[in-house]
Design a protein around this nucleic acid. Structure first.
Lengths: 336, 336
DNA sequence: TTGTAAGCGTTATCAC
DNA sequence: GTGATAACGCTTACAA
């Protein structure tokens, strides 16, 4: 019940606090028997070295922060799963921060983390278009940052991303090859870096296949399912696209629902392809053609890069890892 | 670049460290002008009070640990989203620990957390059948624990769960009412509390509808999709159930896939109902009848209970919140 | 192999 | 309103 600290434990055993430390940290300059005695009593009394006191001395926290827009997005869940498993192996702990795509939250998290609470940060940004000086402050403090997926081009840091331009190009190309003439793009509004790149791949493919780039067909979506439903529904009704390229699986799921309600046949009347990390793509009616990012691996590699820096291989700062996404064609883009 | 601490800042401004503290903690016994000077220079020099030093003094970390089996399970992602939003409001930070349903990991996380690193713990257990004395140790240290969803009945702590028995009963009843005579149950093997309760609701409903309880029809699943695929597939082929009640959406998704491959028509030849938190249930082919748990709210309530304790309303320890799940009937259980 | 003692950077208590 | 000072509980030189 009463808190027991290193000194009382030391007194109890007639050794010095330093020796207790030696036992707990696995140092070699200690008599094995002493060590055993110490650990035995510690276990019995349920003594554990105080985390905050240790860290204050060591100035290493073995903790990293992960900043992401949303957890409920399966892509991010998977990325964190991948990242956590490596972190856990390495003895690191993970703090989670959710920005909900709000720039102010991102800034405030980063500012907070200047207090030395974490050894490093892994993040997926939500504010490409904004000023990033709050991040430069961090770097001055020697707190390394690694980006994944939603990266900031103007910040010098290791980054893990996927071949967004190429995949988007391929996705749009596939729709064109399957006969679509009026291909809509459902993207996310906030000018995030990946939003831009996905858009470019889409537009370039349109041009290469002699299809006009119609601004109307580019639908800016938000994080609100209801609102997205309304605006995608409106777009489908009024513009009658025969192909949809969605930048996120939720947008595809919503499109499915709308088609079902409007009795628009997929893929006959409308073909759909979407970025997706979810295993259910295969189970939808019809099964959904996807571009699937290696989410687990992205998280894993991001953690790897961060640990490289933390372990002193500082050239890693220059690292840019670009992983391949996979285009998996299913029924939603089949020709009849 | 060079680290700046409270003393150097104090020297710079010709005040004492104590006054700096007063400025940063918003204490009233400080001249507003002095405060302004301090905060201004602090901002300029990018000074932030060291987190570990503060905590060592205060013995409050404003941090909670969340221990869950998996992050990629949408139910847990949602629960954490719900929990994080309240935590964030209250100024708390969240450490995530993933057990992957391994008892040893759960024990080791809990033991680790005895070091005073967090003010409290919110967890969903993975080892109902095992010994829980490691948790009692925690409680001696006055680190409160709140359970959600996968609760341990033998541990005295606040708990948030859903009406698992009733929902399972209702689910099984629905299948019986829709004419199923041979209802299989896909459940999770590790005898978790909710696993047991779901099972009981299933068995009691069978009895009440005059259907035999056949052990063979109770399929024990694991966390491995591949293996589950194999054993569910085998069960469907050999036992030919006409109804399936799945304890988790993954198991339902897998069943869909198997039916598709075996050309078994849902719901004509086989009706399916499943626990699910995913929004895609509605988009499957056919749409999936679900029992949907209020995941966000579960997380939110769990956090609420923990904060009540941390804020001194200790009677909260007795709290047991049971939330209602919703049965949403869709096409996968329709009669033809 | 072990002990002593000086910090780590804060904050609380008490003076002034 | 402000400053000196003693903790908080640990780790690490250095000495023995």
């Amino acid at each position: 019940m009463n808190k027991i600290d290193i000194k009382t434990l030391a007194k109890e055993l007639n050794v010095s606090p330093a020796t207790i430390t030696r036992a707990f940290r696995g140092y070699s300059d200690i008599n094995p028997e002493t060590k055993e005695r110490i650990l035995a009593l510690a276990k019995k009394l349920n003594y554990h070295p105080n985390y905050y006191a240790s860290n204050l001395r060591e100035t290493k926290s073995k903790t990293i922060a992960v900043i992401i827009p949303q957890l409920r997005d399966i892509f991010f869940s998977l990325a964190i799963d991948g990242l956590e498993s490596l972190a856990n192996q390495k003895g690191y702990h993970i703090l989670i921060y959710r920005t909900e795509n709000q720039y102010e939250k991102e800034v405030s998290f980063i500012n907070y983390l200047q207090n030395g609470r974490v050894d490093g940060i892994i993040m997926s940004g939500c504010a490409e278009a904004q000023d990033h000086k709050y991040l430069h402050q961090l770097q001055k403090r020697n707190i390394p940052v690694v980006f994944f997926d939603r990266i900031y081009d103007d910040v010098k840091a290791p980054k893990v991303s996927t071949d967004d331009y190429e995949s988007s190009y391929k996705a749009t190309k596939l729709l064109a090859e399957r006969g679509c003439k009026k291909i809509a793009h459902l993207g996310y509004k906030n000018a995030r870096s990946i939003g831009k790149t996905r858009m470019e791949g889409y537009q370039d493919a349109l041009k290469d296949f002699g299809l006009p780039v119609d601004e109307q067909l580019i639908i800016n979506c938000l994080d609100d399912n209801e609102q997205n439903y309304a605006c995608i529904s409106l777009a489908i009704k009024s513009l009658k696209p025969d192909g949809i390229f969605a930048a996120g699986e939720n947008l595809a799921f919503i499109s499915y629902k709308i088609c079902h309600e409007l009795q628009i046949k997929i893929p006959d009347a409308l073909k759909i392809i979407s970025y997706s990390s979810s295993e259910v793509a295969d189970l939808l009616n019809p099964s959904l053609t996807t571009i699937t990012q290696p989410a687990l691996e992205i998280g894993n590699k991001a953690a790897m890069l961060l640990f490289q820096i933390l372990e002193g291989e500082s050239q890693a700062v220059e690292n840019q890892i670009i992983l391949q996404s996979e285009l998996i064609e299913r029924e939603s883009t089949r020709m009849r």
